[in-house]
């Protein structure tokens, strides 16, 4: 399993502008090292080399969606038990339950607050390792 301090996040999001906002929120505000991927396919190629401690992914994406991407990432030996968080505009309990079944340990609602996003992720990380 990963070390206690969260540093490396693999972030998968198809919208370039949301990527930019999240990058500032995670790197400048949160102090993380972030690898941004624009699609599930790109994430699959970059994942092993980047060796993330956490996967943060959008749900609705063209091509492979969030859950499909996570499923494929989990097949990579190095990423079998890397925790994942989904970000979605649909925060209905049913959908949250489905995303948890798909392997997410938490679901963050979109639109997210960029000033508190990093803290939110740190809190989830702490709970996960408590």
């Amino acid at each position: 399993m990963s070390s206690n301090e969260l540093q490396r996040i693999l972030f998968i999001e198809d919208e370039a502008d949301i990527q930019a906002v999240a990058q500032v929120a995670l790197e400048a505000v949160g102090g993380f090292t972030v690898k941004i991927c624009s699609s599930g396919e790109e994430a699959l190629q970059a994942a092993e080399a980047f060796a993330p401690q956490l996967i943060l992914s959008d749900v609705m994406m063209p091509g492979m969606d969030g859950p499909m991407t996570l499923l494929a990432l989990r097949r990579l030996p190095a990423l079998v038990d890397i925790p994942a968080i989904f970000m979605t505009a649909k925060v209905q309990p049913q959908e949250v339950a489905q995303l948890r079944t798909a392997g997410a340990m938490e679901v963050i609602a979109k639109p997210f607050d960029p000033m508190t996003l990093a803290q939110q992720i740190k809190d989830i990380w702490r709970q996960c390792h408590a």
Partner: peptide, 20 residues
Amino acid sequence: LRTPLTAIRGSLGLIKGGAA
């Protein structure tokens, strides 16, 4: 509408919060 608005609100939120 939601996608660009999310980006706008996010950017403004970061500026407002002093991230820039």
